[in-house]
Nucleic acid binder design. Structure first.
Lengths: 213, 213
DNA sequence: AAAGATAGTGAACAAATGTGCACTTGTCAA
DNA sequence: TTGACAAGTGCACATTTGTTCACTATCTTT
């Protein structure tokens, strides 16, 4: 029943899923077009029509944002449905400049127990770990970090920070205005933030998830 | 922080949830108004504004159907949705003799993403880690291990095993009928299972969860 | 070469939709 | 009584958004 999609159709279908996930409502034709550099809404509409014809989408005529998803490879839901769990986006690659919650980076979602993130931290997200600079803290490559956005941190918090456009996970240390980011791996040396450097705290790591096997 | 809603606001909030559930996209002001016999969109808008101010909704300005849900208390939503999560019991202390899944040991439950445990491993459970024998594998004290019950294991699987009535987590190694349980901590030595010992494999570790803070 | 599918442009238009204002009604407490 | 507050009306207005048409450009297949 699952008819084949062209590359373009698949990309657009994926975009719609991600958009809904991020915003809670579907995109307009122009928003889709903007993302794919398609100037004409008609070009977009024909892709949508194709997806409807192939059974992936449903569209309410003459209705703004009237797209609903029929074919659920992975279930897309509202932010949180069960009382004791929440679904948060997984961020993969993070490029400089692009806001971290942009769907450029979105890799999917993961459901976590809400005791990980208390009290309406609905804008939290999960970050996939690259590198091994924190292994002595039990954070390995490809682990998933649960991050709550915040701009400040306390000493020895494990934080996600942006340094000169690069995202890094380190232990935060501040002594008399000297900020240091300390890795948990003997092979790495602490980073000292100089005043002229572009530095900002993205959030604090609240939890770690790891799949084995 | 959960501010009180008026009866009307509550009803409208519920309607928005239900509408999204049914249609896949949020309602417009006029659609809400129609449902409640409110002729003026402005009347509806003020309810929405109130819900935003109280932290239940988020609204994208000048955007059709720009409503997204922030606060999900328990309400009308039928959760026909989240089939991508499951709730499993947490085992705390494990005493000899008592079956491990006995309610004696139960400490609560945790919701996890079902991608941790594929295919009907519904009898899986979570085990709270005692001791530091696996820290080099990134498993720390008080971490939660996701365990799928099984009686056999492959080499270098991380398993939960019962040795002489004691529960232990180690890496499994078997060479020519010699079974060894290898810790991931230089301060511990591998355990060699002798034939006369009471030994059984409880399950295999499929994932690790850790709370920070 | 011709046909067909896929992809895109640019413009025009109608319908859907959010915003803002002045005014009304009913309730409840000071 | 007065005042505050929730709730609603009617209307005008500006945007946003879906729909449609004619035309162009690549491909692949016949």
């Amino acid at each position: 029943m699952k008819k084949e999609l062209t590359e373009r159709q698949q990309a657009i279908f994926d975009f719609i899923l991600k958009f809904k996930e991020m915003n809670g409502f579907p995109p307009t034709l122009r928003e889709i077009g903007k993302n794919f550099d398609i100037a004409s809404t008609f070009g977009v509409k024909r892709h949508i029509d194709a997806l409807v014809k192939k059974g992936y989408l449903n569209v309410e005529s003459n209705t703004s944002r009237g797209i609903s998803i029929l074919f659920e490879q992975n279930s897309v839901t509202t932010n949180s449905t069960l009382n004791n769990s929440m679904e948060i986006p997984i961020i993969g690659q993070v490029a400089a400049g692009i806001p971290i919650t942009s769907y450029e980076n979105l890799e999917g979602t993961v459901v976590i127990d809400s005791s990980f993130l208390k009290r309406g931290q609905g804008d939290s997200f999960a970050l996939k770990v690259k590198g091994d600079s924190m292994i002595e803290e039990g954070i390995f490559e490809n682990d998933l970090l649960l991050v709550t956005p915040q701009q400040t941190a306390n000493n020895s918090d494990i934080i996600v920070a942006m340094v000169d456009g690069e995202v890094t996970v380190k232990t935060f240390m501040k002594k008399e205005e000297r900020i240091r980011l300390i890795p948990a791996n003997k092979n790495y040396t602490p980073i000292e933030i100089k005043p002229e450097q572009d530095f900002s705290i993205i959030g604090k790591v609240k939890g770690v998830l790891r799949w084995l096997n």
